[in-house]
């Protein structure tokens, strides 16, 4: 089995704040989707990325924020086991990032030995 990384990208609306109920609902949606992958025995790991971040550039310049000069940011990632990129793409279906205008980038992982 190969590993693939699904990278969740979206353009967050800084003015939008989720109510506790909405947050709860969002967690459920993510957990149901991840649980579906794990239930097929194809889950490796996942992490959410926070909004806190800085960017280091070659000349020592540090800029605030995780934004790499685009307004789109990476919200998190999930590493899944799949035989092929096509199978990994199938697993990406139903990812909750798609419901908030975001998208999933699926990449093959090359282990470094």
């Amino acid at each position: 089995m190969n590993e693939f990384m699904m990278i969740f990208r979206h353009s967050p609306d800084p003015s939008m704040e989720l109510s506790p109920e909405q947050l709860q609902e969002s967690i459920k949606q993510w957990q149901d989707w991840i649980g579906g992958i794990a239930g097929q025995g194809k889950f490796s790991s996942t992490n959410q990325l926070g909004y806190e971040g800085k960017t280091l550039k070659p000349d020592g310049i540090v800029t605030d924020g995780p934004y790499a000069e685009v307004k789109e940011i990476i919200g998190g990632y999930l590493i899944a086991k799949a035989a092929s990129l096509d199978e990994a793409m199938k697993l990406a279906e139903g990812c909750p990032i798609l419901h908030v205008g975001g998208h999933v980038e699926v990449r093959n992982i090359i282990p470094i030995n």
């Binding site: 459920k28 957990q31 149901d32 991840i34 649980g35 794990a38 239930g39 889950f43 996942t46």
Partner: peptide, 9 residues
């Protein structure tokens, strides 16, 4: 359901 989601991970 949520507990099984976590357990499977």
């Amino acid at each position: 359901l949520q507990l099984y989601n976590r357990l499977l991970q």
